[in-house]
Amino acid sequence: MFPKGQRHKLAVALYLLIWFVGCFWLFGLVYSGTLQSWGGIKLEAVKEFALYAMAGAIGGTLYALRLLHEYYDAPMTERWLMWYLLRPIKCGGAAIITIILFQSGVLLLQTNDSIGAKIGIAFLVGFGYGKVLDKLRSLTETLFNGNGKHDGVDTPKDKDDLAR
Rank of each mutant, 00 (worst) to 15 (best):
D73Y: 08
L43N: 07
G60Q: 08
T61M: 09
I121C: 08
N147M: 07
W38E: 09
G92M: 05
R137H: 11
R164V: 09
A45G: 10
W83M: 13
R7I: 14
Y15H: 15
F2V: 14
I100T: 10
G116I: 08
R79M: 12
T142P: 00
F123Y: 14
I96T: 07
I115P: 05
A13Q: 07
A57F: 06
F24E: 07
I18V: 15
F20A: 02
E78K: 02
V125K: 02
E44Y: 09
N145D: 04
D73Q: 11
V30S: 12
L124H: 02
K159N: 13
G92R: 01
S32V: 03
D113Q: 10
A53Y: 09
L85C: 03
V12R: 04
L51D: 04
G60M: 13
I97L: 12
L16I: 10
G92P: 05
G126F: 02
T142S: 10
L133E: 12
L43W: 01
L68R: 07
K42Y: 05
D151I: 10
L14E: 06
N112S: 13
G152N: 04
R79E: 09
M54L: 15
D151W: 09
L65H: 08
R164W: 12
G33H: 10
L17T: 01
L35V: 05
S32G: 13
N145P: 00
F123H: 07
R7F: 03
Q103F: 10
G5L: 03
Q36N: 13
M76D: 01
M76A: 05
S138A: 08
W25Y: 15
K42P: 02
L43R: 01
A57I: 12
A94N: 05
Y129N: 08
K47E: 13
L139Y: 15
A50Y: 03
L17S: 08
D151C: 12
S114D: 14
V106D: 02
C23E: 05
W19M: 04
K149Y: 13
L62Y: 03
G28V: 10
V21M: 06
F102S: 01
G93R: 04
K131A: 09
L107E: 02
P156D: 14
Y63Q: 12
K149Q: 12
G126H: 04
G148E: 06
Y71H: 03
G28Q: 04
S114P: 09
L17P: 00
L81S: 03
L107Q: 06
H8M: 09
R79N: 10
T61I: 07
L68C: 11
A11L: 15
K42L: 12
I89S: 06
D113F: 05
F144N: 05
G33Y: 07
L68Y: 08
L16N: 03
A95M: 06
F2Y: 15
Q36H: 11
V132R: 01
D158S: 09
L86T: 14
D154C: 12
F123G: 03
V132D: 01
R164Q: 08
L101C: 02
E48S: 15
P3A: 12
W19D: 03
W83N: 10
L43I: 09
G152S: 08
P3C: 07
V30A: 11
G92S: 15
L108Y: 01
H150N: 14
